[in-house]
């Protein structure tokens, strides 16, 4: 029990940023847009969120700043992809390269600055429950928000009118356009949502997961989030499952070290990346599964012709 509780707690903190970023990317991809810039947007969110808290002292302002930074970066992506008809793959890569550089530039004076971390919010009554209360009801707000986003995104995509239109745009932009839906505007919102969610994921990293700013601190989580969306075959509940699975794997090294298992830390750190590859292979092996679930228009440019 002494080990179990901290383990579960760290899994939750490791999974939360992945959950945010992957849910955001899920919506973007459902609209037919592949944004490979998640890593860059996470870094922008991380550094801006941290800077905002450092200068204002307000944690909520930090989260908002992180979301805004991610959304702002995704706006550049949207302008290039939707306005200038640029290749989504190339633009996404550019966004990541730019985000890495920009965040390092913004954060140069923030390296080594300390922060206590987001305040924990204990949910009344429930948090007093023995064991369960400790594990599930004493987290920072963002953990609850991330968990609430899962049913919300699921409901949005499955039952809401706007969600159905979004999926229609992702599956056939020409048909959606012919029916009079504003394809470009819908994709713009989907991209911005993805950006904001990645930004929050970044803010979570620099404000809660390891409350400080380090260059490149996302360490590939943006790419893992992208893989998670494929792993989840574009379904929100499976994103939740995947995020917690990966959260579990990525904290293994901490606990392996604590328990004195003699595997070099580098080998343990490789695990999340190797498991990502393994999971991708397992899912992609079945081409029909991918074809059935992936948005049909993903990655394709849309140029309204009339």
């Amino acid at each position: 029990m002494d080990i179990l509780i901290p383990t579960i707690l760290t899994i939750i903190t490791a999974a939360t940023p992945l959950l945010f970023a992957a849910l955001g990317e899920l919506i973007t991809e459902k609209s037919g847009v592949l944004n490979l810039g998640v890593e860059g947007m996470i870094l922008a969110g991380a550094v801006c969120g941290f800077a905002a808290v450092h200068f204002s002292g307000s944690a909520s302002f930090g989260v908002v700043a992180g979301a805004a930074a991610g959304a702002l970066l995704s706006l550049i992506f949207a302008a290039l992809v939707l306005g200038f008809q640029a290749s989504q793959v190339a633009t996404g890569l550019a966004l990541t390269i730019f985000g890495v550089g920009l965040s390092a530039l913004i954060g140069q004076d923030l390296v080594g600055v300390a922060y206590d971390g987001l305040p924990k919010v204990a949910i009344p009554f429930l948090s007093d429950l023995p064991l369960i209360g400790e594990v599930f009801f004493k987290h920072d707000v963002l953990v609850y928000v991330s968990l609430l986003m899962v049913p919300l995104v699921w409901w949005f995509l499955t039952y809401s009118r706007a969600g159905l239109v979004l999926r229609a745009v992702g599956d056939s932009h020409d048909a959606a356009h012919a029916m009079g839906y504003p394809v470009v505007r819908i994709r713009l919102f989907a991209i911005l949502f993805g950006g904001a969610m990645s930004g929050i994921a970044g803010a979570y990293l620099s404000l809660a997961y390891s409350p400080m700013w380090i260059e490149n601190m996302s360490a590939g989580r943006g790419w893992i989030a992208l893989a998670l969306v494929v792993f989840a075959t574009w379904r929100p509940w499976r994103v939740l499952l995947g995020a917690y699975l990966f959260g579990g794997i990525s904290i293994l090294q901490l606990h392996a070290q604590a328990m004195g298992i003699g595997i070099p830390s580098q080998v343990m750190s490789m695990l999340p990346y190797l498991v990502t590859i393994l999971v991708l292979v397992l899912i992609s092996r079945d081409q029909n599964k991918i074809k059935l679930n992936s948005p049909a228009c993903i990655g394709k440019p849309f140029h309204p012709t009339s």
């Binding site: 550019a94 966004l95 390269i97 730019f98 985000g99 890495v100 550089g101 920009l102 390092a104 530039l105 140069q108 260059e215």
Partner: peptide
């Protein structure tokens, strides 16, 4: 880091 920003 300015280099990276320029390149991006």
């Amino acid at each position: 880091a300015v280099t990276g920003v320029f390149q991006g």
